[in-house]
Simulated assay, not measured.
Amino acid sequence: MPDLLTLEGVHTRIAQYHILHGVDFSVPAGGVTVLLGRNGAGKTTTMRTIMGLWRAAQGRVMFDGEDISKLDTPAIARRGIGYVPENMGIFTDLTVKENLVLAAANGPLDSARVDWVTGLFPPMKTFWNLPAGNLSGGQKQMLSVSRAIIEPRRLILIDEPTKGLAPAIIQAMITALRELKKTQTTILLVEQNFAMAKALGDTVAVMDDGRIVHRGAMAELAGDAALQEKLMGLSLETHQ
Rank of each mutant, 00 (worst) to 15 (best):
P2Q: 14
P2G: 14
D3M: 13
L4C: 09
L5C: 07
T6G: 06
T12L: 03
R13W: 09
A15S: 12
Q16L: 10
Q16M: 06
I19G: 07
H21W: 10
F25W: 05
F25S: 08
V27D: 07
P28M: 08
P28E: 05
G30E: 14
V32C: 15
L35Q: 12
L36C: 07
G42T: 08
K43Y: 07
K43G: 02
T49D: 10
G52N: 04
G52R: 01
L53G: 01
W54L: 14
W54K: 09
R55T: 12
A56N: 05
Q58C: 13
G59L: 00
R60Y: 06
M62H: 02
E66R: 09
D67G: 12
L71I: 03
D72T: 04
A75C: 12
A77Q: 12
A77C: 11
R79A: 00
G80I: 00
G80A: 06
G82M: 10
Y83G: 12
P85H: 03
P85D: 07
N87L: 15
G89W: 01
I90Y: 13
D93E: 10
L94K: 09
K97E: 14
E98H: 08
E98N: 11
N99G: 08
L100S: 00
L100R: 00
V101M: 06
L102A: 09
A104P: 00
N106V: 05
G107R: 03
L109F: 14
D110K: 02
D110Q: 11
R113L: 05
D115L: 08
V117G: 06
L120V: 01
P122I: 02
K125W: 04
W128M: 06
W128Q: 02
N129E: 11
L130Q: 08
P131C: 02
A132L: 04
N134A: 10
N134Q: 14
L135E: 03
S136Y: 09
G138N: 12
Q139I: 01
K140C: 04
K140R: 08
Q141W: 04
M142N: 04
M142T: 03
M142R: 08
S144I: 13
S146V: 11
A148Q: 09
A148V: 05
I149L: 15
I150Q: 13
I150W: 11
E151V: 02
P152E: 13
R154C: 03
L157D: 05
L157H: 07
T162C: 13
T162P: 10
G164V: 09
A166I: 00
P167S: 13
I170N: 14
A176K: 00
R178L: 11
L180E: 03
L180S: 03
K181I: 06
K182L: 07
T183A: 10
T185G: 01
T186A: 07
I187C: 08
N193I: 10
F194Q: 04
A195Y: 09
K198H: 15
A199K: 04
L200H: 09
T203Q: 11
V206I: 05
M207H: 07
M207N: 04
D209H: 14
G210A: 06
H214V: 00
R215S: 13
M218N: 06
L221G: 01
L221V: 02
D224H: 09
E229R: 12
K230N: 11
S235H: 15
E237R: 01
T238V: 13
Q240T: 13
Q240M: 14
